[in-house]
Design a protein around this nucleic acid. Structure first.
Ligand code: NAD
Ligand code: NAD
Lengths: 222, 222
DNA sequence: ATGATAGTGTGAAATTTTTAACAAATACTT
DNA sequence: AAGTATTTGTTAAAAATTTCACACTATCAT
């Protein structure tokens, strides 16, 4: 289910580590904004709700970023993590499916702040083609293969209905995309060398409902 | 980081199992729509991109739903999973923060199809209060405590900016909410007996970028 | 300097999660 | 009715991940 990832020493890196690194970056940024300069794994762990050793272990995959007896310099750690993940540059992204979710993402400037710039928006609905959303003209999705090259995009986000996700993926693949983030609740097939990630929030609602049911059966709410 | 969950036999249930169960439900529904009646763990595993034993193990936490030598009856398995997770009923949900993402979720009827009905939308922006989105009037978020009771809501979705997430959470908690799904990229504090789930897609983009970088360093795209 | 305190990096231990293997149960065939 | 095919549920083994524990380094106070 999960892709296997390696660092430069060719150690396998748990998928969970990547997820946590993203969390650390966010927390580090928040700390930076508060004017903090240094933080210990203990404190950062508290902020993130994880175990301190976990943080040190996660970081150890990529190098030594801390100072013993002191902690981590916040700015430097944040940059080090980003560099380790290949986020020390801009990634051009195209988005396919300018519906409710697609629009939300297009207007979401946190992506840009993180180095992901949406450079093209595509849809197949003639009513949507030509429209302008968040400063981008919506193009016909059949032009994707050419546009991907032209825009120099490496990542494609799919926000079409599930039954159209494979078609959208095919266009992206044809255009030479390197990675796909699929928000439609369906699996897609792609050549081995193309990275495919699935985003699905429904499981968080499932999980919440389940845990509430458990709490309820324990009489936690009476 | 992850909540510990138990089944009725008081076995600990991996968080990953819950995520996969959500995936199975989705695939089973897709199969049902194709008119299929029965499926083996082998086939379902293929569809979901997981190991067949994994599926059988995941299901074993909750009971015996298959028939040896035959497989699983699709409709029955789907219902059994949903029942196991407490999804055999409707969950009333309120949403706080009617911005880009909040609107997308309000208009997203897949939630309703899965038994999560958004019964109230709240914002603090006077320009948004009174507006109608997806058939719901937007209310002032300070009225949340009362409205939660009135609407009989058990789950709250937070889609405010991160710096407002705690405030939104406080309103929800005051109203006696049982679970919170937080889309804002920040941790929130809540009493022990309130379930809190964090949704964060940025990690999927991080992960995609990282994997592409790795592939690139392996010369996979030349 | 010296000692006390704080806090990283890491190998080993503990725990969790996944995968494999197979006995038990069903259906189908002759 | 016996034999063969399948395919589950479950136990055991393997693999992966998390946590612990502590040597080692830096800083600060005296
Ligand atoms: N809205 C949400 O909050 C939300 C949440 C989670 C997941 N999702 C998933 O995201 C996807 C989009 O959801 P939505 O609510 O935005 O749906 P939507 O119907 O509002 O938008 C889908 C868009 O995709 C376009 N489209 C369809 N086929 C296409 C194709 N082949 N090429 C290009 N564009 C195409 C449609 O014209 C439409 O504009 C769905 O798969 C949904 O399940 C949505
Ligand atoms: N837009 C996306 O695609 C996207 C994706 C991932 C995560 N997020 C996260 O989701 C959250 C919302 O994103 P958005 O793009 O919709 O932002 P947005 O600014 O469009 O919407 C935020 C809404 O919250 C309201 N709000 C602010 N404080 C509030 C309070 N105390 N009570 C009630 N309402 C309040 C605002 O009035 C506004 O309507 C952010 O935290 C963002 O990081 C958004």
């Amino acid at each position: 289910m999960n892709k296997v990832m390696f660092n430069l020493k060719n150690e396998k890196i748990p998928r969970a580590t990547i997820t946590r690194l993203a969390l650390y970056v966010q927390q580090l940024e928040a700390l930076e904004q508060k004017g903090e300069k240094v933080i210990s794994s203990e404190k950062l762990a508290q902020e993130c709700g994880v175990n301190p050793s976990q943080i040190r272990k996660d970081l150890a995959y990529f190098g030594e970023f801390g100072v013993r007896g002191v902690g981590y310099y916040i700015y430097e750690l944040k940059e080090a993590i980003k560099k380790s993940l290949g986020l020390d540059r801009v990634w051009n992204v195209v988005l396919v499916g300018v519906g409710n979710l697609g629009r939300a993402l297009l207007r979401h400037n946190v992506l840009r702040k993180r180095g992901f710039v949406i450079v093209g928006a595509f849809d197949c609905d003639p009513f949507k083609i030509g429209e302008e959303v968040a400063g981008l003209e919506v193009f016909c999705s059949s032009t994707l293969p050419d546009k991907i090259q032209e825009l120099n995009a490496e990542i494609g986000i799919i926000t079409t209905p599930p039954e159209r996700a494979q078609r959208a993926a095919n266009y992206l693949i044809k255009g030479g995309i390197k990675g796909i983030v699929n928000f439609a609740p369906t699996r897609i097939s792609a050549p081995e060398n193309i990275v495919v990630e699935y985003v699905d929030f429904i499981n968080h609602l499932f999980s919440t409902a389940f845990q509430i049911s458990l709490n309820q059966s324990k009489g936690l709410y009476i």
